[in-house]
């Protein structure tokens, strides 16, 4: 499955962030958005990756950007995960139909039934400006995200 190309419009989606609340990509128009697809809550590498973004959030926000995490885990799992790790950005549940948004973004792993570890940086007009597909076991860090945001704001 191929990732979406830079310069294309980011497909909109609307997914639950809490049991009674949904978040749509289109709500973020006017802001840059970092989409973080990751395979699963609680697996150690994910925790490290999201923990890093939690720490780096002030640097990301300086670029008029917000972080959105996405995995196929259910919303109750996300809630507990977010609470325990104190994440300060929304984590959306791409649960029903499973992985639909990951599939839209070419970031779904059919064999495992999870999303890839993939990053997208989307500009304030909703255009994809950068993407990165990481090996599943590797924490991709935040340098690519910040380089991309810096380029957008130049």
């Amino acid at each position: 499955m191929a990732m979406l190309k830079e310069g294309t419009k980011a497909p909109d989606f609307s997914l639950p962030s809490t049991p009674d609340q949904k978040v749509s990509l289109s709500e973020f128009r006017g802001k840059n958005v970092v989409l973080v697809f990751y395979p699963a809550d609680w697996s150690p590498v994910c925790g490290d990756q999201l923990a890093l973004y939690n720490e780096v959030l002030p640097m990301i926000k300086k670029h008029n950007a917000e972080v959105i995490g996405l995995s196929v885990d259910g919303i109750w799992c996300h809630l507990e995960f977010t609470k325990e790790r104190k994440y300060r950005f929304p984590i959306l549940s791409d649960f029903e139909p499973k992985g639909a948004t990951a599939k839209l973004y070419g970031a779904y792993r059919d064999h495992e039934g999870t999303s890839e570890r993939a990053l997208y940086v989307i500009d304030k007009d909703g255009i994809i400006r950068w993407s990165y597909l990481s090996p599943v076991g590797v924490n991709p860090g935040a340098d690519g995200i910040l380089d991309a945001l810096e380029k957008i704001n130049k």
């Binding site: 490290d48 923990a51 720490e55 640097m59 860090g141 935040a142 340098d143 910040l146």
Partner: peptide
């Protein structure tokens, strides 16, 4: 130090 680390690809 922290910001320089992030920009250098420190991921943990």
């Amino acid at each position: 130090d922290f910001e320089g680390g992030v920009r250098s690809g420190v991921n943990g």
